[in-house]
C-alpha cells in the first residue's frame, strides 16, 4: 500500500539508489519506481513496523511492475502514476496460527 504523508524524518532513514521497492519471489518480478524520486529504506521494517520505504517524489513518477531480467512490463499491474509529494510504502502482514507469529507477506 502506498499512502501520501505530510512528512517523514529523513535522518532516521537510509537513502538508497535501488528503485526496486518490492521483489517478487521466484518469478523475477518486482515493483520499481521510475522517475525523479528519492527512495529511503526503513531500518525498523518488520512485522510490527510495516513501513518498508518512504518516497520523496519531485516530479510525477511511475510505479511499474517489471520483469527483473528483461525489464519488460509483466502485464499484471497497470502503471501507477504518483504525483509529486511524500509517500509511505506499507507491506502487508499475516498471522500464522500454527507458529503463533506475525509474518510479512511476500510478493
Amino acid at each position: 500500500m502506498i499512502e501520501r504523508v505530510d512528512d517523514f524524518k529523513q535522518t532516521s532513514l537510509n537513502e538508497t539508489k535501488n528503485r526496486l521497492l518490492v521483489k517478487g519471489e521466484g518469478r523475477y518480478h518486482g515493483h520499481f519506481i521510475v522517475g525523479e524520486a528519492q527512495v529511503y529504506t526503513n531500518e525498523d521494517f518488520g512485522p510490527e513496523n510495516l513501513t518498508s520505504h518512504f518516497l520523496n517524489i519531485k516530479q510525477e513518477a511511475v510505479l511499474k511492475h517489471l520483469h527483473i531480467i528483461t525489464n519488460q512490463a509483466t502485464g499484471e499491474h497497470a502503471d501507477l502514476r504518483l504525483p509529486p509529494g511524500k509517500y509511505r510504502v506499507t507491506r502487508q502482514r499475516e498471522y500464522n496460527p500454527y507458529a503463533k507469529i506475525i509474518e510479512i507477506i511476500r510478493d
Binding site: 519471489e25 521466484g26 510479512i104 510478493d107
Partner: peptide, 9 residues
Amino acid sequence: FISVRNAEV
C-alpha cells in the same frame, strides 16, 4: 497452505 508465506504461491 499456512506454511507458505508467499502471497502469490
